[in-house]
Design a protein around this nucleic acid. Structure first.
Lengths: 149, 149
DNA sequence: TAACTTTGACTTTCTTTGACTATTATACAT
DNA sequence: ATGTATAATAGTCAAAGAAAGTCAAAGTTA
C-alpha cells in the first residue's frame, strides 16, 4: 500500500468519527515519516470539494490544516450536478442551478442570493474575463459543498 | 491554541460583558507569561477600528490600555467597514471581520462560513496571486452590502 | 510511456521575543 | 511653586521562530 493511501486512510478514519479533523502537517509528516509536502499532496488529490471535503488552513505559529466532511446523504443530492459542472460556469448557468436548488429545497433563497452575489461579474470584476468562468466554478463548487449541512 | 488567540479571547470575553475594558499591559503579559509587546500585537491584529473598537492608552505610572467597543447599529457598522476596507483584503483580516460580525450578531455563523469559503484561497485558486486580495475585497464588499439589512 | 508518488529546496504567512524608545507620574530639591 | 531625576508604564520595529504552501525534479507503477 502506498504511503499516500495510508495517510488518506488515517485522516478519513478520524473524519468518519467526527466529520472534521484539525491536523498539524508537521505531526502527520513525522508520524508517517515523510516530508511535510506529502501531506499537501494527499490533501490536494484526495480531499477535494468534488468528494465532499472542505479544507482550510493557517500558517505560522500554531498553524493547522482543517478538513471538514460535509454530510454525504444530502451532498449526494447535488453530487451528480457537481459532477457535471465542468471547470467553467457562466452566470446564467449558475442561475439555472440556483433555481433548481431552491425548487428542490437544497438551499434557501437567502443562501442562493449569497452565492449569486459571490460569483457575480460585479464581484469578479478584477478577474480577467477569460478566467472568470473558471473562478466562478471554483467558488460555486466550494460553496455548494459546504451548504449541504 | 495560539497564545495570541487566548489573549484575544480573554479580552473579548470581558468586553462582551462590559463594552469596555481597561487593561494593564504588564499584568496581562505576566498573566499570559509573554513579553509585553505581544499584547500590542494582539491588539493591533484583532481589535481593529474597522470593527468598531476604539483603543486608547496611556504610558507612565498608572498607565493603561483601554479598549472600547462602540455600539454601532448593523448598518452603521457595515457602512463603516465598507468605508474603511481598502481595495485589498487578506484571508486573515477577513477572518477577523467575520468573527466579530458573528459575535455582534451582524451575521449568523452559517452565512459567515459561506462568505469565508467564497473568498478563500481555495475558491480563488485560479486568480493570480497578486490579484487575489483585491478580488477578495470585491466579493466581500458585495456580499456584506447585500446580505446585511 | 503516461500517470501517479515521493522528495526537497525555497517561499509565504503568522507569531513570539527583545532591545530600544517615548511618555507620564511622583518624589525631591530649590 | 518650579524644575529635575527616577521609576513605572506603554509603544515600535525588526529579527528569530514556527508553521504551512509551492513547484519541479526524481522515482514508481500500470
Amino acid at each position: 500500500m502506498k504511503l499516500s493511501d495510508l495517510i488518506e486512510e488515517y485522516i478519513k478514519e478520524i473524519i468518519r468519527e467526527n466529520d472534521e479533523v484539525e491536523l498539524k502537517r508537521s505531526d502527520l509528516s513525522r508520524m508517517f515519516n515523510c516530508v511535510p509536502s506529502q501531506i499537501n499532496y494527499v490533501i490536494s488529490t484526495r480531499f477535494i470539494p468534488e468528494m465532499g471535503f472542505y479544507v482550510e488552513s493557517r500558517r505560522g505559529g500554531g498553524g493547522y490544516i482543517k478538513i471538514i466532511k460535509t454530510d454525504l446523504s444530502k451532498s449526494e443530492q447535488v453530487a451528480n450536478i457537481i459532477d457535471k459542472i465542468g471547470n467553467k460556469l457562466s452566470q446564467s448557468v449558475i442561475d439555472v442551478y440556483l433555481k433548481d436548488f431552491i425548487s428542490y429545497n437544497v438551499l434557501d433563497e437567502k443562501t442562493a442570493r449569497l452565492i449569486k452575489i459571490a460569483v457575480s461579474d460585479k464581484s469578479l470584476d478584477k478577474v480577467a474575463k477569460l478566467d472568470r468562468d473558471s473562478v466562478r466554478a471554483d467558488i460555486f463548487k466550494n460553496l455548494i459543498i459546504n451548504l449541504i449541512d
